[in-house]
Design a protein around this nucleic acid. Sequence first.
DNA 1: GGATGATGTGGAATCGGTTCCAGGCGAATG
DNA 2: CATTCGCCTGGAACCGATTCCACATCATCC
Lengths: 349, 349
Amino acid sequence: MSGIAEVARRAGVSKSTASRALTGAGYVSDETRRRVQQAAADLGYRPSTSAVGLATGRTRSIGVLLPYVNRWFFAEALEGVQEALHERGLDLTLYAARPDTATRRHVFRQFLTRKGFDGLIAIGLEPQDGEVERLLAMRIPVVGVVGTSDAISVVAIDDEHASRRATELLVDLGHRDIVFLGGGASAAHVDRLRMSGYSASMTDAALTGHIRFVPSDVTLPGGYAAAVDLLGDARRRPTAIVAVCDEVAIGAIIAARRLGIRVPSELSVVGIDDHEYAAMFSLTTLRQVPREQGAAAVELLQRHLHDREMAPTAVRLQATLVMRSSTAPPLSAESTVQIDMRERPAWSQ
Amino acid sequence: MSGIAEVARRAGVSKSTASRALTGAGYVSDETRRRVQQAAADLGYRPSTSAVGLATGRTRSIGVLLPYVNRWFFAEALEGVQEALHERGLDLTLYAARPDTATRRHVFRQFLTRKGFDGLIAIGLEPQDGEVERLLAMRIPVVGVVGTSDAISVVAIDDEHASRRATELLVDLGHRDIVFLGGGASAAHVDRLRMSGYSASMTDAALTGHIRFVPSDVTLPGGYAAAVDLLGDARRRPTAIVAVCDEVAIGAIIAARRLGIRVPSELSVVGIDDHEYAAMFSLTTLRQVPREQGAAAVELLQRHLHDREMAPTAVRLQATLVMRSSTAPPLSAESTVQIDMRERPAWSQ
DNA sequence: GGATGATGTGGAATCGGTTCCAGGCGAATG
DNA sequence: CATTCGCCTGGAACCGATTCCACATCATCC
């Protein structure tokens, strides 16, 4: 209820002095500052965000756009963004909308209809939709998480490299019949990067003839269903699977268990993510930490906020291999690679 | 860049007329309105949210407070809230912070330091922490999801009733040795409600002596670890489990499978939630739809927004039983209840 | 034909802050 | 001693919208 004028009156100073005392900008004597702060505390004074925003031209509020919140990567990244923003005293305005939906288009209209963000973080933008351009048209700093773009700053792991490492691991163990599980025709951009890393690695290993993509929904039940299909038929069954992500990988492991196929002796599985369930399923995977990516995006955004001329920068992280026990040499082959199985799963204590 | 003054000039009218034409408030001739709208479109005019907020006193922005975003219930509820808010042209400002953390306290300071929300939705507030009072002190409408409070409006299922139904189902099948899995000493409010529903039902069935709580983290790996422990020892093994939620229930099913215990013939499991993985594990459960709860909370909030004197209202939903095949009579007993197993799992097609 | 009311428009105040500018004061400088 | 400078303060303009009020016009109703 009470504005800064009230605070000023109570402290016996002018509005301008009160403002300076509270924001810390400009000269104010220690004694005056104390009195003003005391008056503000007494009155329970809260500055109006609208008024501050109008006067300063910045809202201290960041828009965050993403396709899902109920999926591991996005939820984790969102929490990372959220935490990093709050450390800096910035608010987070959320826009969640799946690609190619009416809601998504509506969000873009909303975005473009209202101006009121100091910056924008877009998680999992699909580049082809021309959305990057529309965001740039808002003339505020934009940082992406996942995906590539020359026009905006981006934080992401090298997805192609991650699936390449996953595939190489299996090749090195002696596998030849390695299937890529997940993705498919309507795959998202990241998924396609991972698919091409697999292809490249198979080609390098002179296994071009063995390249095989089995599509699935990019979810745990999706991986399960596709794997039941794939593994149920003994003639189609590979000795190893590279999964597009851990959720699909875990679905495949559950499917294998149900079918009585032993992991890793009869089937090796590698994922990408290091999902919170990965340890529980002893899944060998390439770890990325979306929470850190979110924090890095905020960091990058803040640099853009301070220096409006800063050129777009790509922060490309490296996924790290986490060796657990869902991978082993195929029954038919010999391998010279030794697996370190000493890791104690975190959930078992 | 261009404000409403620019639009007005281009349309050859005053600022006030331009404002009326664009907001739709007050009299404007059709011809004038058309000209103003055209001018606004030509200039790509976007009203400043700060200025609108200052002038009207409302920000069209709702604060949403929750403990986690990376857990099923909260992620789903958040998506529901988000979607419902956007349908109404309201923005969502997110505050995610775990209970009893420095961040949480910081968020409360933030909340109380800035005023700038038309309303507030709090998901999973723990009543004991005096947080409800602090939110009420903000003098804006508050709606809770999950939990009880006389002071604010709340949307939730009847948790006690849900676990009661779950327990009764098992009792009716002939089980006596029924364990409640999950929760524990530091359980959240909802968890304790579910625990007491179980107790009450066991007492009603004259099975007071069989009441047994096995604590676990309220996560899938937590349920797995606790169930491995519980089921690994044949002497402690119950014939049925009521889980505090589906994630714990699924953890238990996975544990049972790993230990070679057959579900449902050797072990029945009932959950609460109808988690997205529930169908895949054929889990019998009591369904709640957090997405709808989120939407209902928005609906309720909007009513409070329109009528500031409206009394706090509790919307208490009923969880509905979803019968799948994780439940059966115990091997030792006979049962008169027939289970309908005709449901085709959605993920299998 | 004058009063009434609905419609349409512009000027000016207002929301609640920040910030520019001018001015006062005391200490240091030339 | 006059200037200059650093520190401190208040007055007023300003940010960009909405909204109150006054006024003009025109049709309608006694």
